[in-house]
Simulated scan of single mutants.
Amino acid sequence: MGYIVASADDAGGLGPEELQGGQIRRYGVPARLNPEERFEHWRTWYGTAVDTPMRLEKVDSPVRRNFNPTASTLCGPGFSIVELVNEPVAGYWNRDSCSGDIRLVHFKASSAEFNFSGRSEVISPGTVRFLDLSSGGGFTAPAGLATVQLNIDRSLLGLDEKSVKRLQRMTDVRENPMVRGLLLPWLSDWQRTGIERAVHRLGPVARSMMVALISSLLEEPAAGDLKPARLAAIKKFIHRNYRNQDLDVDAVVAYSFLSRRALYYLFEDEYLPVKGYIRMLRTLEALDLLTDPNSRRRSLAGMAEASGFKTLQAMRRAVKECTGSSLRDVQENPEALRSRAHELRKLIGT
């Protein structure tokens, strides 16, 4: 296990890619090297790219021919996300006395045996847990190891040492509703196209999600603002379901366990209220269908139904209000309407 904070230069694997508002870096061993050289390259790079110094050793001899580990990192204000795919390897670390982060790790594939302060634990695929590097230890992963983790500056969460230790003693929190319903989908999707444009907004969201999770796990009142996490969860629910004609404000209220008034308050600083947000997503879906080169092969009523509108007239009104154009105008001038749809997506942050 490693916590990537730097990337190889151009002479190494894949050079860093700098992004506005944050940075995403990717690394892979050079393909031109033979297997033994690839392992040495990975081991050397790994030892300089982690904030907890770690030594890697082979578990197979010889190194498998397709040895191809990778690492990707997104760094934002007060947090980082790391995705790591390790080939068969063993790792050892010394006591981490200087890190101010708390680390939530999703072990995505393959079992590995970890040693924490002399105590052995087998961590199975699917496990989600806080990782404790405060004392020396190591791991052995004969089949490799794939992980994605969220690191948060501990000072942003108001955690004392006792609370941190309680969290680190929890061996698997994957069944927690916050983990299952929000954090895991979010971490699974972090490398999606366009995340660089939103990185400045991810810090408060990541912190809010972690505060909500920790409050749930420790059964203590949250010490931070949960609004960003709740808003992110509700928007995700709407995105998954807006094509369903039965989705309305009442359905969102039932999902969120909030009162209608509290739900409206949650959206008060957004570009649109919750009802308008649902309608806008349906309108954008309709515009995508209407501007598709094959749109004339589909009926307008069918496109309205596929977008989540209950009637064709409802789709006509929504498109007209958002673009000033009729459905026929949209189909006859698709490029202009695609530009308008792009502007609308930026306004609502999708």
Rank of each mutant, 00 (worst) to 15 (best):
Asp153Ile: 12
Arg345Thr: 03
Phe79Ser: 01
Ala251Phe: 07
Asn151Gln: 14
Gly138Gln: 06
Asp248Ile: 11
Leu14Tyr: 13
Val63Lys: 09
Pro77Asp: 10
Arg240Ala: 14
Ile123Asp: 00
Ser188Glu: 10
Lys58Cys: 04
Gly181His: 08
Leu284Val: 03
Leu33Ala: 04
Lys320Pro: 00
Pro273Leu: 10
Arg340Pro: 01
Gly47Asp: 09
Arg296Tyr: 03
Gly203Phe: 01
Ser110Met: 14
Leu33Cys: 09
Ala6Asp: 04
Ala141Lys: 02
Lys58Arg: 12
Arg261Trp: 09
Glu18Thr: 14
Arg32Pro: 00
Gly126Gln: 06
Phe257Tyr: 09
Tyr271Met: 11
Gly78Trp: 00
Val29Thr: 11
Ala229Gly: 02
Trp186Cys: 04
Glu220Gly: 08
Ala6Ile: 01
Ala318Trp: 00
Thr350Arg: 13
Tyr271His: 12
Leu187Pro: 06
Asp225Leu: 05
Lys108Cys: 11
Arg338Lys: 08
Asn244Leu: 09
Val5Lys: 04
Leu258Met: 06
Ile152Gly: 04
Glu37Thr: 05
Pro185Tyr: 02
Asp172His: 00
Tyr3Lys: 12
Ser117Lys: 11
Tyr46Ala: 13
Arg43Thr: 05
Leu281Phe: 07
Asp51Arg: 12
Leu184Gln: 06
Phe67Lys: 05
Asp160Met: 07
Val29Trp: 00
Val122Glu: 11
Ser155Ile: 12
Gln168Trp: 01
Phe39Thr: 02
Asp172Arg: 00
Leu202Trp: 12
Gly78Pro: 02
Asp132Cys: 02
His342Glu: 15
Ala229Gln: 01
Ile4Val: 14
Arg207Ala: 14
Val205Tyr: 00
Glu83Thr: 12
Asp292Phe: 04
Val205Met: 14
Gly91Asp: 02
Thr44Tyr: 07
Lys346Trp: 10
Tyr3Cys: 07
Ala336Arg: 15
Val253Asp: 03
Leu281Ile: 09
Ala301His: 07
Val199Ser: 01
Gln331Met: 15
Gly47Phe: 07
Ala6Pro: 03
Pro334His: 04
Val59Tyr: 01
Glu37Tyr: 06
Gly22Phe: 04
Thr350Gly: 01
Asn115Thr: 15
Gln149Asn: 06
Pro88Val: 06
Phe309Ala: 05
Ile238Ala: 08
Ala8Asp: 15
Asp288Trp: 10
Lys235Gly: 10
Ala90Arg: 12
Ala314Val: 06
Asn66Met: 11
Ser72Met: 11
Asn115Met: 12
Asp96His: 02
Thr73Asn: 01
Arg261Thr: 12
Phe237Asp: 09
Leu131Ala: 15
Tyr264Val: 11
Ser134Tyr: 03
Glu121Arg: 15
